[in-house]
Amino acid sequence: MTEAPDTHRTLDQEELAELIARLQSRGLRTEISMEARKGGAGPADAGMLWIDGSPATVPTTADYVRDSPYALRQEDDGFGIYEGSVRLADAALAPRPKYYDLKTADGVPYWQIALMHLDSMASTVLQTCAYWGNSDQCTFCGIGVSLAAGRTIAKKTPEMLAEVSVAARDLDGAVDATLTTGSTATPDRGALYVGRCAQAVKEASGLPVQVQFEPPSDLDVINRVRDMGVDSVGIHVETFDPEVLARVAPGKARWGIEAYFSAWERAVRVFGEGQVSTYVILGMGEDPDLTVDMCRRAVDMGVYPFIVPLRPVPGSLMEDERPPSADYVEGIYRQVVPHMLRRGLTATGVMAGCARCQACSGQAALERAGSGSTKGGVPDGRVSLPLVF
């Protein structure tokens, strides 16, 4: 067991953002059992922990992690993150959720219905997708991986999710619910079903809920989702580079990137600025200048671009890829975050979902650094983080 130093310096927010970017690029070696997410529809291979009190998910099991210079070590009074013999930061591990020990009346384990992502209950309500297993499959996605491994069930009902949400709130302190879905071959793309699930969760637990879906062919569907009591939505373009989107997500690319902007425009009108977000995945060969420009365009509409590094999912078509370098990811953060701050668009205003949680990205730490506050916000309209061009 490694003896911890007598005094531990807390990282400032810029240092924290840099460390999270490095860990998400190289991974974290550990021999300690950690709560982790495997497979699924979004970032996976996700060891869940808090670094100096900030939520983070980092790769822990991928093959490339063996070569990482960063290690998690147990200490007398907790855990620390080390590079060689140098202690970099405090770490606290996510405990195994208590509700994982429960089952529904017909015997379905709660953990097969929804997982805890640190302080958020999350579920893929339809673990099947019209794109999976054919030429339209998104290469970065692992939605079918966890289903094939028996770690989840194909369809979660509103009643199941409502039951689990109450337990997650009461036993494990869940503060919101994030519900996503595989795309369906219907005009609403699955939005109405995930909306009904969200309505049941909200009525049962009172938790704020984000739902995630593709742009529906009829934008009035977005209004119907809002009428179900949903608090925020994620409509994820994945990448702003049309050539990359056509290569990594051919089914989604057929809608065209402008379809996302149209859906966002309606969603912002319905849900409000900051309650509409999109994943922007870095490291798939995208044009960085185009990425920055389009992120800023989204921000100007009131859309929160949740910028994350590629997290290659074991079992996906991109399982042999590597995450982008930390320098590249941090460079994009530093070009987008100051623009967000000037628009007053920060994670602190998001009610639910991935952009509220922020664990899969380092950008919220830069938001806090840029605002001059550890709690976010822009005091007196000033932005202290330098704008990088």
Rank of each mutant, 00 (worst) to 15 (best):
M284V: 05
P250K: 07
W264E: 01
S232A: 15
G285D: 10
G234I: 00
V233A: 02
F240I: 06
W255Q: 14
G315D: 06
S262G: 09
D327N: 15
D241S: 10
V248H: 02
P250E: 07
G315C: 02
R322C: 08
E273Y: 12
S316G: 01
D241Q: 10
P250A: 10
P309C: 01
E243I: 03
P250T: 01
S262Y: 05
A253F: 08
W264I: 03
G272N: 11
G302C: 06
R269W: 13
P250R: 08
F306R: 13
V268C: 00
K252G: 03
L317E: 13
P305M: 15
V303N: 06
L310N: 05
V299T: 09
F271T: 00
L310Q: 05
D300Y: 10
A259Q: 05
D300L: 13
D287Q: 12
L245G: 11
R247K: 15
I307G: 08
D287T: 10
D300H: 13
D231A: 14
L310R: 07
P324A: 06
P242Q: 08
I235N: 05
D300V: 08
S325P: 02
G256N: 07
P242G: 08
L317T: 08
V244H: 09
V233I: 05
A246L: 01
G234V: 01
V248N: 05
P305C: 15
L310P: 04
L317D: 12
V270W: 03
L310G: 03
A253L: 10
V280L: 14
Y260V: 05
G251L: 01
F261W: 07
V233Q: 05
V268H: 02
E273T: 14
E286Q: 07
I307E: 05
L310F: 03
W264V: 01
V233W: 02
S277G: 11
Y260L: 00
P312V: 05
D289P: 02
T291G: 09
L245P: 10
D320H: 09
V292N: 11
G283W: 01
V299M: 09
D320C: 01
R247A: 14
V292P: 04
S232L: 09
L282Y: 08
G251A: 00
C295T: 10
V292T: 13
E265V: 11
P324Q: 04
R247V: 06
E273W: 12
S232W: 05
L282A: 13
R254C: 02
A259T: 06
L245A: 14
G285T: 07
